[in-house]
Amino acid sequence: MTAAIAAVGLGKQYGRNWALKDCTVEIPSGRICGLVGPNGAGKTTLLNLAVGLLAPTEGRIRVAGGAPAAGPEQLGKVGFVAQDTPTYEGLSVADHLRLGEAMNPTWDRDLASERVATLATDLKKKAGNLSGGQRAQLALTLAVAKRPELLILDEPVASLDPLARRDFLRSLTAYVAEVGVSVVLSSHLVADLERVCDYVVVLVQSRVQLAGDVDEMLATHRRIVGPRRDPASLPSEQTVIEASHTDRQSTMLVRTSAPIHDPAWQVEEVSLEDVVLAYMGGTAEASTTGRPTLEVAQ
């Protein structure tokens, strides 16, 4: 299957600074993929390059099988909701729908009106007067009503309150369940992604630290706690991602291909957040320890 997003050696330079440098990543299609990383990791730059709002300084990127924004067909394939779900403040909800319909040959009017009806707002209301949650839903409606193959969302829920956040994600996942579209969404909060995504890419300083299937990640990572021990003495199938020690106790997050039977360890399951934070946190020492950076199988 064609990758949703495939980038090789991608870079974007502003003046002397690189917002993204030497980024190589492949995001499979047919998934809801979370792009996670600290602020400044290059997530927004990568997504803006993917939709063609930015042109790369170096490297290549293919999106849903084509070059970003290469022509009307490519533009129709990709739906985009930019950071903070922008809308036109001075335009009404109805204006937004008219605009969407005029500009998109594949516009699905029924879908658009159906979705907007759930907002429970006056269609004549200006977008600037909508609540944050309603505005986000309107932006999502504009992106999905063109019936894209791939939906790209940049931090869609970051500015929403918890209830609006949940509503937005429900509406997004229900849409995906209905039409089976590929989704890439970025966030710096793993908790937002944990339920929604089945694939996660962790980006730190333009580099992919971890990429893979979420269930696979949860199944292969464990936290082990026991008497102090040198991480190097663990069996070869266990890779230490993160370790901390007191004078008596060792706590390690390990990736393992086999069950851990050593009775000295108390073995605990970990959350996606634990795994992602361990990979994000370890980057400073990654180069010195030679720890593999891209390992969880797809």
């Binding site: 998934r31 809801i32 949940r166 994600l169 429900r170 509406s171 997004l172 996942t173 229900a174 995906v176 369940a177 209905e178 089976g180 339920r195 929604v196 995504c197 089945d198 269930d215």
Partner: peptide
């Protein structure tokens, strides 16, 4: 149904299918 579960819990449809 998958869609009901997904719309209620805001989870990935593949999760329910799996």
């Amino acid at each position: 149904t998958v869609k009901d579960v997904v719309a209620r819990l805001a989870i990935n449809p593949n999760t329910v299918l799996k």
